[in-house]
Amino acid sequence: MDQEFIAEYIPLYREAAVLTVKIGFAGIAAAILLGLICEITDYFRIPVLKRVVAVYIELSRNTPLLIQLFFIYYGLPKLGIHTNAEVCGVAGLAFLGGSYMAEAFRSGVEAIDAIQEESAYSLGLSRFQTIRYVLLPQALTISAPALIANVIFLLKETSVFSAISLMDLMFTAKDLIGLYYSTTESLVLLVVFYLLILLPVSILGSVMERRLRYAGFGV
């Protein structure tokens, strides 16, 4: 292994990592928001919208991110919407992740016995208070492991961004391999940088999970 090469290209990887993290977390935040909206639509059985959500979830879960990205990247301009690759990356991740997040929220909500809700109503709590103080904290606690797994999954999915010419980690590695045939060094750096991003998220995730398990969310 060429240590000089590694030292020389660390800054390039660092730049790419920053881009990956930026787009990754922006996409994940959007995915969580989208998932929450889907679950709210589903929970309150909002007519029409509920159907739209069901179609979206199947479409999103059953097509690869790469193809979703192509549709967004090459399709949007044809509809007259011109954006840059970064926005497309965020949108693609949100489109893919939204359905996974929605399903995670749904599993949490559905895991709570209906009688918990009745117990809250019988105490004279309003529907909003029941959701806010009784259902949501329990649902989030139950969903937490799935939500955290989704975050890690989506961060890893960012590796296909290179296909829409975003200069992310994968793009950088492929580029260096193409230019210098430095396969080993480039790939080692790639793995190390992905681990640097994902390990802290993973560890933070398990800590949060443990904290959340019995968290009170205050009264």
Partner: peptide, 13 residues
């Protein structure tokens, strides 16, 4: 409510 203490369970409503 499993996510609340005994006191919070009683005080909520």
């Amino acid at each position: 409510f499993p996510h609340m203490t005994v006191l919070d369970n009683i005080m909520l409503a």
